[in-house]
């Protein structure tokens, strides 16, 4: 059982605070959605948790080991990280891009060994990319490309998965499909932390929600516990009505 525990973490960029005194945990079997307005510090929180940025104070630990003390390879084998999606530099084949996810296991493109080839195949099947495996990535739509990125993150077969806006710029159907893939991953025993901007997707998929605003974590709990009209007003500055899992937003305040 791999568990990520962030406690009292503060991140600074020179003199400006990016995240202040944040604490949360992520364990297998959970699909945690991180919500908050632009500039709230969500991406910084993820990077700090991953150990990519050294905290000014506090600690992020993976089963008790400080994440910034892990080597890049060790970290990647335990924590799959899908940052905000950027264009690929070269028009590689889909299977090769997915295989890049095995880098932390020492895989090299073009000559995948047994375990690596199997993991790549499983990720391709899980993300419904079998038809596209031999296609060049520059012939894919945005939604298909997002699945390729998910597949390469899953191919690492890490116990924990952290994704930064994996559904950005996708149509509703593809947003559902990406979230389905992440839910399936959690069903297979993984733990996922996902940044979303869509409260409806969060309502449908999250087992837990973490709310951020102005560099701080405001709330951490189930949808019922943390989603109120007041919260949406303070976090997003919108007028909203909440009725069970249904949220209606009436516009900016």
């Amino acid at each position: 059982m791999t568990e990520l525990a962030v406690s009292d973490m503060t991140l600074m960029a020179k003199t400006i605070a990016l995240v202040e005194a944040a604490s949360f945990r992520l364990a297998p079997g959970e699909l945690v959605v991180l919500l908050g307005p632009n500039g709230a510090g969500k991406t910084s929180l993820l990077r700090g948790a991953l150990g990519l940025q050294k905290p000014a104070s506090g600690v992020a630990a993976l089963d008790g080991v400080n994440t910034s003390a892990l080597s890049a390879m060790q970290r990647a084998r335990n924590l799959a990280y899908l940052p905000q999606i950027r264009p690929l530099a070269w028009p590689n084949r889909v299977r090769d891009v997915v295989a890049l996810g095995r880098f932390s296991h020492g895989a090299a493109l073009g000559r995948l060994k047994g375990a690596d080839a199997d993991a790549v195949e499983r990720a391709i099947i899980a993300c419904d990319l079998v038809r596209f495996a031999a296609r060049r990535t520059d012939t894919l739509s945005g939604g298909e490309l997002a699945r390729v990125h998910c597949a390469r993150a899953f191919a690492a077969e890490a116990p924990l998965f952290i994704a930064d806006e994996p559904t950005a710029a996708l149509d509703p159907r593809h947003q559902f499909r990406i979230m389905d893939l992440i839910r399936d991953y959690v069903g297979r025993g993984g733990g996922a932390l996902v940044v979303l901007h869509d409260i409806h997707l969060a309502a449908r998929y999250a087992t837990r929600l973490i709310w951020m605003k102005d560099k701080r974590i405001l709330a951490d709990g189930s949808f019922a516990e943390t989603v109120t009209a007041d919260r949406l007003e303070t976090v997003y500055g919108v007028k909203a009505r909440v009725n069970g899992l249904t949220v209606e937003m009436d516009g900016a305040l």
Binding site: A72, Y81, R86
Partner: peptide, 21 residues
Amino acid sequence: RNGLSVLTLGEEAAIGVGLNL
């Protein structure tokens, strides 16, 4: 050379899959 392959993904994602950039 394998580090150059993963840089295809962009720097942040390459770090994500385990590259010491």
